[in-house]
């Protein structure tokens, strides 16, 4: 196992940025460490200075505003899975985060780590992708706000450079049934805890009078990053929210995706088929949540 040399626990975002800036690339942000420490163990990580952001009070808050959510960068999966607000107004995120690893992993692992680790099927990131989350990234150069879909460079490679940048918060519109907006998450794994997904799907959608207003569908792991079938999402607009349309859409999405074969997490053809099943189920579930039957 490789080891870091120093460990800092700043109490403010400014302090964290200061430390990163001071060590110029040799430092790195650590959240829960549930991805980072195993990477040290496997000799895949060699940062010398770790900057722990989990003691920064404002980064640990979940705030429900008038029509949006602001999630602190160091909020854990357990916080999200246990929040009544999140359950009521971003159910897809509650459902996704409760699937992560185990209680212990959820207690430690943070939502930002889930994004920056950049796995194409990271459960939290899949949900945030469907939520069209805007990610606030702070560095010595100031703050920028970037949509989550633009943060990926490849499998395991994030555009967030956590040697100099910190995700301070994540923002997205709340999912409000009153406005006919709803969401859902579906997942398939080898067992019911402590398992990475073979396929996971998150959807957010809005309907009007039995028709799709819009829908966002996020799927993993079928590409280098959480995948959104934008063209099909466009096509969905105006389609009836009935079983037949959903079947057609799910089929189309399944035709589109190019999952890889994994010796441990499923062959390509199976995953492709499961994308169809899970996209269909997620859409049906989200529509059912709007109170009326899905047709």
């Amino acid at each position: 196992m490789r080891r870091w040399e120093q460990y800092f626990t700043p109490q403010s975002l400014e302090e964290a940025i200061f430390l990163l800036d001071k060590y110029k690339g040799a430092g790195k942000i650590i959240g829960g460490g549930t991805d980072l420490i195993p990477q040290f163990r496997d000799n895949k990580e060699e940062s010398k200075y770790l900057v722990d952001v989990t003691q920064i009070p404002e980064m640990k808050e979940i705030s429900l505003l008038e029509d949006s959510f602001v999630i602190g960068g160091a909020v854990t999966h357990a916080q999200l899975a246990g929040s009544q607000d999140v359950y009521n107004y971003a159910q897809v995120l509650a459902e996704a985060t409760v699937c992560v690893g185990s209680p212990q992993i959820r207690n430690m692992g943070t939502i930002s780590g889930n994004i920056v680790n950049a796995q194409p099927a990271a459960d939290g990131a899949i949900a945030l992708t469907a939520l069209d989350a805007q990610v606030h990234i702070t560095s010595a150069d100031g703050e920028k706000v970037v949509p989550i879909t633009e943060l990926y460079r490849g499998v395991g490679k994030s555009k967030v450079d956590s040697t100099i940048e910190v995700i301070s918060k994540i923002e997205f519109k709340k999912i409000d049934k009153v406005q006919n907006v709803s969401s859902a998450f579906e997942r398939l794994a080898s067992r019911k805890a402590l398992a990475l997904p073979m396929v996971n799907v998150a959807v957010c959608l809005k309907t009007t009078g039995g028709q799709f207003d819009w829908a966002r569908i996020a799927i993993g792991p079928v590409a280098q990053m959480p995948f959104r079938p934008f063209l099909i999402e466009d096509e969905l607009r105006g389609m009836p929210t009935d079983e037949e349309s959903i079947r057609i859409i799910a089929e189309e999405v399944s035709q589109l995706v190019q999952p890889r074969s994994s010796k441990l997490r499923g062959s390509a053809d199976y995953r492709k088929e499961m994308v169809k099943v899970l996209v269909g189920r997620a859409l049906m579930k989200a529509i059912a949540r709007l109170g009326s039957e899905p047709y």
């Binding site: 460490g33 420490i37 195993p38």
Partner: peptide, 26 residues
Amino acid sequence: GEGDCGACTVILDGETVTSCITPALK
């Protein structure tokens, strides 16, 4: 040593954590 088995679980400020992947300074 990887968070997979839970045998190293301790309670940290009321929450369970797997101590094998928890930096002591946490």
